[in-house]
Design a protein around this nucleic acid. Structure first.
Length: 480
DNA sequence: TTTTTTCGCTAAGTGGT
DNA sequence: AACCACTTAGCGAAAAA
């Protein structure tokens, strides 16, 4: 870690140096216009989930989860998955999901019968591993081993997971029978089996999606791999004691190949290390003092800043889908965690300072992009902005896009316009006027998931179908 | 002993003053 | 705008089967 930051310090473009983090009151507030600050506050308010949407989504997702667990437990043909349990992860369960509760993540914990031999794949700096049992076993995991009887096959696990979920879904019925889950086509580099919730009759629009990711749990007797021992750098932020309690927890491996073609034999069966459960805990216990966010007097704006950054990243990805294909929410999360660990004091994150804090976070991401250095928070030797994962071209584009956003008053952060018909009606009172700068800029259309009954009433597609049907009928009558 | 149910705590959204 | 009481969801620990 130390030598890592020494490296970063040499880069003059890298603005977010630890040494530059001595708080200077007022320093950050200066460049933000009151109008932009107002906008940022309003947008942060807007991003939170509505309880009515949550209620509907959570019932469906929880029912799905419980039913899947029961199915796996009773699935005699695949005993290895019988003991699996769920660890909810991802932004919904970190309480940083924005706009709509429409994406859920669950890790399906799979236990390892013995200690694991974790071999770093060359060239990937501790993010991707070959994972093998340290001794042969009679456990049910043995149907997922390669010919050597030790190495655990990532592709066998993900394929079986996919098969099991498909089998489960073939008999599963959503309570109420108005919707159905479909299993998405397997994506070659994804560790997840993705389920989409569709309406039964008008099955085009995805209402919810759930990612199920098998996750191999490293036995707790075994520490983290060497590359992860250097991170996470939270001593100044959360204290040495908390760091110890974090690093004593287990870590996981998810079946994911490194990017690119012509992979070596080992890389084809490789696993990526995962700290989703620790990330969740970090975001939950984000305060420098234990009292952070306990009362209204000690509230902070850290999560709000992160939500705003997520919103901007999603906006950028929608505006420039090809150019920023490599960009993902994990880049935002990583930049956020680094910023929290450097800018540790609770007093720097009071709700009053929300606009300034968000701009600081945005500058931090810009800094990481400019320097081309975004170390994985737990595996600092792995740079998330390094090619081939993040091509040079995309990085240059990102730097320009971020700078442009900041100069133009964050047009992509602002609510989409024109808003969908219903949203205009229900929000017209609270919707702020667009600033001139924003109006000039092409504004993206966010996918808006409306509650099901609203979709039924308002589905243009359905109306379109009806109109088409009527036209066909008229034509038939004319022929007769 | 093991599994299931209940309980208490926390975070966050809601609506009223 | 700020505060308050109230509700819901998630989660781990305690209690019960």
């Amino acid at each position: 870690m130390l030598q890592y930051y020494a490296h970063l310090r040499q880069s003059s473009q890298y603005i977010n140096l630890p040494t530059a983090e001595i708080p200077k009151p007022g320093d950050e507030l200066a460049p933000i216009s009151p109008e932009l600050a107002r906008w940022i506050r309003l947008r942060a308010q807007d991003l939170k989930l509505r309880q009515s949407d949550r209620q509907w989504a959570v019932d469906l997702v929880n029912h799905l989860r419980e039913s899947l667990l029961v199915f796996l437990k009773n699935s005699d043909e695949q005993p290895y998955f019988q003991s699996a349990s769920v660890l909810s992860s991802g932004s919904y369960y970190e309480m940083v999901k924005i706009l709509n509760p429409n994406e859920f993540d669950m890790m399906l914990k799979l236990q390892s019968p013995s200690r694991l031999k974790m071999t770093e794949l060359d060239q990937y700096h501790g993010l991707f591993y070959e994972v093998a049992l340290s001794r042969s076993t009679r456990s049910h995991i043995r149907s997922f081993l390669l010919d050597d009887g030790l190495t655990i096959s990532a592709s066998k696990i993900i394929n079986e997971m996919h098969r099991l979920v498909r089998k489960f879904i073939s008999t599963y019925r959503v309570p109420g029978n108005s919707w159905r889950w479909v299993v998405n086509r397997k994506r070659p580099n994804s560790p997840a089996v993705t389920l989409s919730l569709l309406e039964v009759d008008n099955g085009k629009q995805e209402l919810l999606s759930v990612d199920v990711v098998p996750a191999l749990e490293v036995p707790s007797s075994q520490g983290w791999p060497l590359a992860a021992r250097a991170g996470p750098d939270v001593d100044n932020w959360l204290g040495k004691k908390t760091r110890r309690s974090l690093t004593h927890q287990t870590c996981f491996f998810v079946p994911k190949k490194p990017p690119g073609r012509n992979l070596s034999e080992a890389a084809k069966e490789s696993w990526r290390i995962s700290f989703s459960h620790i990330e969740k805990e970090l975001i939950k216990t984000h305060g420098n003092k234990r009292t952070c966010c306990e009362t209204s007097a000690t509230k902070c704006c850290r999560k709000q800043c992160f939500k705003l950054l997520k919103c901007l990243i999603e906006g950028l990805k929608q505006r420039y889908p090809q150019e920023l294909d490599a960009l993902c929410s994990y880049h935002g999360k990583t930049a956020f965690l680094h910023t929290l660990s450097i800018r540790a004091q609770d007093s720097l994150w009071t709700p009053r300072q929300l606009p300034a804090c968000f701009m600081h976070l945005l500058r931090a991401l810009e800094g990481h992009a400019s320097s081309g250095l975004l170390p994985h928070f737990f595996v600092p030797t792995s740079n998330l902005f390094a090619p081939p994962t993040f091509p040079r071209k995309a990085l240059v584009f990102l730097i320009q896009a971020l700078e442009e956003q900041r100069r133009q008053g964050l047009p992509l952060l602002m609510p989409p316009a024109p808003a969908p018909p219903l949203a205009v009606h229900s929000h017209s009172d609270s919707q702020p006027q667009l600033s001139p700068v924003v109006q000039q800029t092409p504004v993206i259309q966010y996918p808006v998931i409306l509650p099901p009954q609203v979709v039924e009433m308002k589905s243009f597609e359905q109306m379109f179908k009806i109109v088409a049907l009527v036209m066909v009928l008229v034509y038939v009558c004319y022929l007769l």
